[in-house]
Design a protein around this nucleic acid. Structure first.
Length: 459
RNA sequence: GGCGCGAUCGCAUAGUGGUUGUGCAACGGAUUGCAAAUCCGUCUACCCCAGUUCGAUUCUGGGUCGCGCCUCCA
């Protein structure tokens, strides 16, 4: 029985799908004007894990993760680059897919682009206007009248009064209330034709929040099971989505809201605005992507996750232990769910996606295997697979490394050195054998003698 | 100012009203020509102050510190 923490109720709840055996899930994805950073990596990996676990649990999942391809920052960036919006967004969508693929993130069932759903957004805005929740402001933007929507602030635990008290928003440009947000931005003369769509309120483009409501409704229906995203989207983005969808449809929008914690650097949120972010591809130059995935899943999805080289190094060593246990064994990869470790694994995952405990089970399996119980090899591999881990050849993982690109030593060179050392050992020239080993060690290559020969791996 | 989250062994990260988890690191032993890997063992924590309790790291209240949201942000 799966329980998950629902941001809306602020407690763990038993997950009951709307339709037996099926789950409909929407996750807020990327705004594509730059490379993804580690924070994006976390959202993608976390909800990939969620989708995998739901499927492993026998549910048919429809997973939607949107792409925001129209927005102020995109327009600005395209202008700076003197390139069409579409060229810019296409480029970064490709880059995003490269990053996601590297991290073992499976493609969602749908990746809708906002610009493909403008008519649906306009329909929804029209409905909101009809319901008395949207109005055309003096500056010709169409705005959502937040005060007319009862229950605004329920998700984020904010009251309209408190928001006003701490208000730091610019003086309203035509808004009736500073809290009101834009549904439809009227077109400006200096904007490219590419970002102008006709509408009954005049030419313009969608506000940010409306796209998710419209696309989720179109692809999953007006009410669905799970909606996820980064913690920072809880307010105002998700609060506004609720106001839009419930305001338009007159019934609840989402049953379970999930928010993943931030990635931090030096105990500060990693973000574009703070400038302390690392892009995924930057990190992947120095760390194996599976190490990054492991690093993310080793922490609970709702906890903050501190990034540092030391922590990634630690994660690499830990993952190496798992792969080392798998080395020299072939095992079928089907989970036997009646086996005790698998039961613990399931219990951990069913408790709000407790990947840290699930990973712990993996280490216990590795220990059992190292003690000689090779019947558990298949379990380790198969449970690893549930998390999207441990599917490579152990040797391939162990011989790849942080320095793989620049230590300049090819496998052939290393093998040749090993052969030379074996010869030296045979001749009882241990000084020479040790010299060769130390030399390789200085290049980050660790040798391991075994009855069946000498193996090597990268430290 | 409003709202919320967190404080666990050297580092990291789980979890639990009483049996003290996991990874990395460290130390001792086994193994090894020596190593590495592995195994066995050691070290063994729960911010502070009250309260509830037979018993609290775990529950309640207060405090301190850190962080997040309230503005674009995964």
């Amino acid at each position: 029985m799966l329980k998950l923490y629902n941001t809306l109720s602020r407690e763990k709840q038993v997950f009951v799908p709307m339709e037996a055996g099926k789950v409909r899930m929407y996750v807020c994805g990327m705004t594509v004007y730059d490379y993804c950073h580690l924070g994006h990596a976390r959202v993608m990996v976390v909800f990939d894990m969620v989708a995998r676990w739901l499927r492993t649990s026998g549910l048919a999942v429809t997973y939607v993760r949107n792409i925001t391809d129209i927005d102020d920052k995109i327009i600005r960036r395209a202008g700076e680059n003197s390139e069409p919006i579409r060229a810019l967004t296409d480029r970064f969508i490709t880059a995003m897919h490269e990053d996601a693929d590297a991290l073992g993130v499976l493609r969602p069932d749908h990746e809708p682009r906002a610009t493909d759903f403008v008519p649906q957004m306009l329909d929804m805005i029209g409905q909101l206007e009809k319901n008395g929740l949207a109005y055309l402001a003096d500056n010709r933007d169409v705005c959502y009248h937040v005060r007319s929507f009862p229950g605004y602030g329920r998700l984020s635990g904010k009251s309209i009064e408190d928001l006003r008290a701490g208000e730091r928003v610019d003086v309203a440009e035509g808004k009736r209330d500073p809290l009101d947000f834009v549904l439809w931005k009227h077109a400006r003369a200096d904007e490219p034709a590419e970002v102008k769509w006709p509408s009954s309120w005049g030419e313009g483009r969608p506000g940010w929040h409306i796209e998710c409501s419209a696309m989720a409704t179109r692809l999953l229906g007006p009410r669905f099971d799970i909606h996820g995203g980064g913690q920072d989207l809880q307010f105002p983005h998700h609060e506004n989505e609720i106001a839009q969808s419930e305001g338009a449809h007159g019934h609840p929008y989402v049953n379970y809201w999930m928010h993943n914690g931030f990635v931090r650097v030096d105990d500060e949120k990693m973000s574009k605005s703070l400038g302390n972010f690392f892009t995924i591809r930057e990190v992947l130059k120095r760390y194996d992507p599976e190490v990054v995935r492991f690093f993310i899943l080793r922490a609970h999805y709702r906890s903050p996750l501190n990034y540092s080289d030391a922590h990634l190094d630690d994660a690499r060593h830990a993952l190496s232990r798992l792969y080392t246990a798998l080395k020299d064994h072939d095992g079928a990869a089907m989970v036997d769910w009646d086996e005790p470790h698998a039961r613990r694994f399931r219990a951990a995952m069913d408790d709000d996606f407790g990947t840290p405990e699930a990973v712990e089970v993996l280490f216990d399996l590795a220990a059992e295997i190292n003690r000689g119980d090779t019947t558990l090899v298949g379990q380790l591999k198969a449970l690893g697979n549930v998390l999207g881990l441990l599917q490579r050849s152990p040797t391939a993982f162990l011989q790849s490394g942080p320095a793989a690109q620049d230590d300049g030593l090819s496998a052939e060179t290393i093998e040749a050195r090993i052969a030379a050392r074996v010869a030296a050992k045979k001749a009882k020239d241990f000084a020479e054998a040790d010299r060769i080993r130390d030399e390789l060690k200085d290049s980050g290559i660790v040798l391991e003698d075994s009855p069946r020969g000498t193996n090597w791996r990268r430290a």
